[in-house]
């Protein structure tokens, strides 16, 4: 966890009315953390929300998971794709609806932004899988949600956020640095706040909070994967996240993820292929 400075604390008070997760999803987060929960228990909670059920099933049946037969109900989805996957899908669907849906006006394209987030998720999953990380599913979700703090910034003060993006473009400095300077807080810290409020699992919260690799601290494969995926997707111009700072994967992350030029090429080839399979996640933004 990143300890906020006094200044940041003060700035954070501007964001004290954080959006809350829908009851169904909050309940999902809670029951999946209990090891005695069964697929049927989870089914009973998710099925209360028909729209959510429909979207989760559509994603579960997408090429991204590639299960050879049709999955027709939540119980099946849980027993086949796993408890974590379904929890993460429910979470992603809800967070997208709350935080990524395009608004009428604005200079920030939520469509391109979501595209960036999906690409980072897919890429983080590939990277974490290569080093045998215990939950590649969480890497995917951490990637999807890593920039959630930007949505919050944009929603709270659109003009200020756009000004930060402009400043980043002009000075070629990292967006988070500019945010800290101008707003006293950056999107990673805000994202961490949201994650805390939503009771997200600790590893997801850590990845959201630390994806720029601030400070020394021990590096874990999930944080490193999201960080490297963020850089690779920006370099490949997959989507747009408003950041014009330097693109460089931290050496510690390169080492932990066993990346070199050749490995990166392999990852990018796989990314291109897997992104096609992840098409269903992009459809979110077309009001599906």
């Amino acid at each position: 966890m990143v300890i906020p400075t006094a200044e940041m604390q003060k700035a954070l008070t501007r964001f004290k009315d954080l959006p809350t997760l829908p009851d169904v999803v909050a309940r999902v987060m809670q029951i999946v953390s209990n090891p005695l929960t069964t697929a049927e228990d989870l089914n009973q909670v998710i099925s209360l929300d028909h729209a959510l059920t429909f979207k989760v099933l559509r994603l579960a049946n997408s090429a991204y998971y590639g299960f050879p037969k049709e999955i027709t109900n939540i119980t099946q989805a849980v027993t086949i794709l796993g408890f974590n996957t379904i929890r993460n899908l429910a979470l992603s669907v809800s967070v997208h609806k709350m935080m990524f849906v395009e608004r009428e006006k604005g200079l920030f394209s939520y469509r391109d932004f979501w595209k960036h987030c999906v690409a980072v998720g897919v890429c983080a999953r590939i990277l974490s899988r290569r080093v045998g990380y215990k939950s590649e599913e969480n890497a995917f979700t951490a990637g999807l949600l890593h920039d959630i703090g930007k949505s919050l910034l944009e929603r709270v003060d659109h003009a200020a956020f756009i000004a930060c993006i402009e400043a980043s473009r002009e000075t070629k400095r990292a967006l988070w640095e500019v945010e800290q300077e101008r707003l006293g807080v950056d999107h990673a810290a805000l994202g961490g706040r949201l994650a805390e409020n939503w009771n997200l699992p600790g590893d997801l919260r850590g990845a959201i909070e630390r994806h720029h690799l601030p400070g020394e601290g021990a590096l874990d494969p999930l944080v490193a994967s999201v960080h490297a995926a963020d850089m690779l997707c920006r370099q490949q111009s997959l989507g747009m996240d408003g950041d014009f700072g330097p693109i460089e994967i931290a050496p510690a992350a390169m080492k932990l993820l066993r990346l070199d030029e050749r490995a990166i090429k392999e990852v990018l080839v796989e990314l291109e292929h897997r992104l096609k399979e992840a098409e269903e996640f992009l459809k979110f933004s077309r009001g599906a």
Binding site: A39, N43, G66, F67, P68, Q76, T79, I80, G82
Partner: peptide, 29 residues
């Protein structure tokens, strides 16, 4: 292909009985 798929996931999973008719029948609640 269910078995090979499961092996690729490397995670224990549960499948409904693919008995008579559609494999999805009789598994709901």
């Amino acid at each position: 292909g269910s078995l090979v798929w499961a092996l690729k996931q490397g995670r224990t999973l549960v499948m409904a009985d693919s008995g008579q008719g559609s494999w999805t029948q009789g598994v709901d609640e």
